[in-house]
Nucleic acid binder design. Structure first.
Lengths: 130, 130
DNA sequence: CTGTATCCCACACGATACTG
DNA sequence: CAGTATCGTGTGGGATACAG
């Protein structure tokens, strides 16, 4: 549906989702907006290192994909608030297990030698065909 | 854990995971290996459009991240089999909800073109998660 | 405050050829 | 069969400046 930037051939749902969420800052934006509604400037402060151009671009894409809602208040000075749509909330929830995996397996898995994977610690067990 | 390609500052688990799984073909590789062990050539045939160079590179990265296991058989002609590690299986499972979201929200489901999507084979489920 | 408009560049990816 | 080696490229993203 929304604005698939890639040609049209998604092999499965995962890479379709990856396309939506693939920008460098998007999951962080999702995460921030998952907590509460945020203004543009708040988002920028929340994501150290992002530039306005890129933040605006990713916000646009997320909006085009129906993930975030942009509410513009015609005041002066201008105020714009971003929030998650229902679809965005669902996406955020679908991301949660991945976040848990990341915390458990790449952030800090507890082992001091975690930095370098030696060949004897990766278990070759095969994914079950079932 | 292994080989964080990004500087070191992951804000949360999700972007850490995104870094691991961020390559263009990685989720597809994960998906394929989730079904069964595959040889290099089988993988290449499975992923239409990937070149050997890129496939090899992404495989190397996944291996370095402890996601896939590479088993080389000293035969002639050479044979190499790739499989998921326990960590890879867990990652694949963590990806499942995202895959479901993608199927439901970006793969054209409500439109007349929905017939293009082969709904019988695109569920990436690895194990009993479903 | 909330953005565009340019310019620029690294790096992921692709094409092709070659090797153990 | 299972890869490397080389070279070329597109584009996502960064810096900076400007605008409503």
């Amino acid at each position: 549906m929304g604005t698939a930037r890639r040609p049209g051939a998604y092999v499965c749902g995962v890479d379709a989702a990856m396309d939506v969420v693939g920008g460098k800052w998007k999951v962080l934006i999702l995460w921030a907006l998952g907590e509460r509604v945020r203004r543009f400037g708040a988002l920028r402060r929340e994501l150290p290192g992002v530039t306005e151009k890129v933040l605006a671009a990713q916000l646009r894409e997320l909006e085009a994909d129906g993930i975030v809602h942009r509410e513009e208040y015609p005041e002066v000075p201008p105020r714009v608030e971003y929030s998650l749509t229902a679809r965005g909330v669902a996406l955020n929830e679908a991301l949660a297990p991945l976040g848990r995996w990341g915390r458990d397996h790449v952030l800090d898995d507890g082992s001091p030698a975690a930095g370098q994977v030696r060949e004897d610690d990766d278990v070759p067990l095969v994914a079950g065909t079932a």
